[in-house]
Design a protein around this nucleic acid. Structure first.
Lengths: 342, 342
DNA sequence: GACGTTGATGGAAGCGCTCTCACTTTTTCG
DNA sequence: CGAAAAAGTGAGAGCGCTTCCATCAACGTC
């Protein structure tokens, strides 16, 4: 505790009360829009507030209300990923928009490494936020346990690995994987490979599961050399595609578990002289903006982000307001968007 | 104020004091690491804290200390931009890392539209944060005024438009523009065009100024048809490059004011059948990761981000601690990174 | 051995706000 | 016209914490 800063001390509720000629309680009522205030008092208070540029001190209010009116969106991912994958942008934008409708504030917290995760945990436990939305969870992430233990209202963006009873919203990833794979099969493709997401993320696991389910239903063999693991990044997608071409040159279709990876795969295919969709059909996942823009336009599985982000927010607010009975969760349907690549 | 939530009320300082058999004052001293506590008392308190899982209530502490130990990094930009331009990622990562060294928390706030700007302003005035780093400022952004009026310690990432006396850190953008343009000139290029950044951002303006300065120094005419305005995005860069090729087909070099735009420009040039660097030399700005990876590798102007982000943090902390005399600011030198594109 | 010193500790006063409760005034209705 | 209900208001008790100040024990010092 070195200095004091030069912040001119702002006016308090008392000063407003004195100026308005009423009691502190009345000022508080006006500020909190209680209906039981006479119009005259209300006006006097408003005038005083305007005159003094009064702004309520949040710490004092929080101390008694036990609320901060801010929620955190925690990005549990390397920021290279966060800032390059359009999926994150979409979620942030969507949640942000949903929160903007309310009186709440939204803060973004990054939790890339153990140290930052610890800080986020402390931040939440200290009562800085009323609730947390956790996204991009990896299998071993300690944050779910930390935050659950802290008793903070919590919603996951994405199904949790263990079946823990927690509120979450997710796209139907496995259903989407089935959709994509069946689309390829229905087009008469014989050798359908896949570039999966990271296997320590549920979206990676579930989309892969969908691929396998579809093959199984079609009575097709699952060949290990048709599976390469990516990391949801464009570079990773290119790498995995190259690997696949080496191991299984006969492939004529590939389900790539994210659009950025699909862009990389497209590049790798072009580099290898394969034409899309003539030689190899490609289906991506996400329906990111880039999907429609790339060459050829990418057939992909769309997630209903427009539904998911408000839902995420709603579930959290319900928990905060204490009206959520049990941990609710929602799986949102995915749909295939057919374009030229498959 | 509907419900109460089910958060089990956490233990207070008093309870710790009772359990440890000391006074509240002593517990507070231990928590705040005051040296004037006997080892026995300290140990007893630590034991009690561990036993109760005590976490200090931040609101109560802030109320008296007038500090929150959190600072905000405000992204005053559309999130499409934020999430696609690697420059943002670098700043966020750098500041994040610098903050991680300290006891402070970092929150990211988005301020895309007037409504969000208002919220950010309120958030700061209500005392949620000890200081603010403002980045990606556009000319008409109201946030600087709002935050200055709020008396919040403030550092700009980027020189302010007006010469207001405010702390800021910026790269030497105009110097970088000179560097890039002179490099092109020195290579014997006769018709050096430029794709600028947005003219409502200081980085766009300054880099363009550098381009003009270099032409002037070399005694070359400044031709309006050699200037096209971009928006720092890849698509914008491609668009501007196309425009340039139409207006000034004779051009044999172009200074593109950001790497993402340069990638777009490279694409446009390839599309138009121009070879780089044979027909047209290209210099970018930022030295983003993509610069080394693209084809051909991009000659670009590097910003010393590794210096800038700690500086940004340091300047802010100094203000918060009240040791900053006046508004300090720093311009960090840029340097040319020569690669194949020019 | 009386004295100031030093170090450790607890009592208590707030920080700025909310909210219960009691009080006064006004309205309503039998 | 009186009693009950409703409406508006203020006093005051905290919320959990820090910190000033007083206290007290243990320590040299002459």
């Amino acid at each position: 505790m070195t200095g004091t800063g030069s912040r001119t001390s702002s006016p308090t509720l008392d000063e407003v009360a004195v100026l308005a000629g009423v009691s502190r309680a009345t000022v508080s009522r006006v500020v909190n829009e209680s209906p039981r205030v006479s119009p005259e008092a209300r006006e006097a208070v408003h005038a005083a507030i305007a005159h003094l540029h009064y702004v309520p001190n949040r710490a004092a209010r929080s101390l008694v209300t036990r609320r901060t009116d801010t929620i955190a969106l925690v990005l549990s991912e390397s920021d290279t990923m966060v800032f390059s994958d359009p999926f994150f942008a979409s979620i942030v934008r969507g949640v942000s928009a949903a929160i903007a409708e309310t009186e709440l504030n939204l803060v973004l917290l990054s939790a890339r490494d153990a140290r930052e995760q610890e800080k986020v945990g402390r931040y939440a436990r200290q009562g800085h936020v009323d609730g947390v939305i956790l996204m991009s969870l990896h299998r071993e992430d300690p944050l779910p346990d930390i935050l659950t233990a802290a008793g903070v209202p919590l919603v996951f963006c994405g199904r949790p690995f263990d079946g823990r009873p927690v509120a979450y919203v997710d796209a139907d990833n496995s259903g989407g994987g089935v959709l994509a794979t069946e689309h390829l099969l229905a087009a008469g493709r014989r050798h359908v490979a896949t570039v999966t997401g990271p296997m320590d993320m549920i979206a990676g696991v579930d989309r892969f599961a969908g691929y396998r389910t579809a093959l199984e239903r079609a009575g097709r063999p699952q060949r290990p050399e048709h599976v390469a693991h990516g990391d949801f990044s464009e570079a990773g997608g290119a790498r995995a595609m190259t690997e696949l071409l080496e191991r299984a040159p006969e492939l004529d279709a590939v389900f790539v578990a994210s659009d950025p990876m699909a862009v990389g795969a497209l590049r790798a295919l072009r580099g290898a002289g394969r034409r899309v969709p003539d030689d190899v059909a490609v289906v991506g996942f996400d329906d990111a903006e880039v999907a429609a823009a790339c060459d050829p336009p990418l057939t992909t599985v769309a997630q209903p982000l427009a539904d998911m982000t408000p839902l995420l927010t709603e579930l959290l607010l319900r928990q905060i307001d204490g009206v959520a009975e049990t941990a609710e969760s929602r799986i949102c349907p995915t749909r295939l968007v057919a374009r030229a690549s498959a």
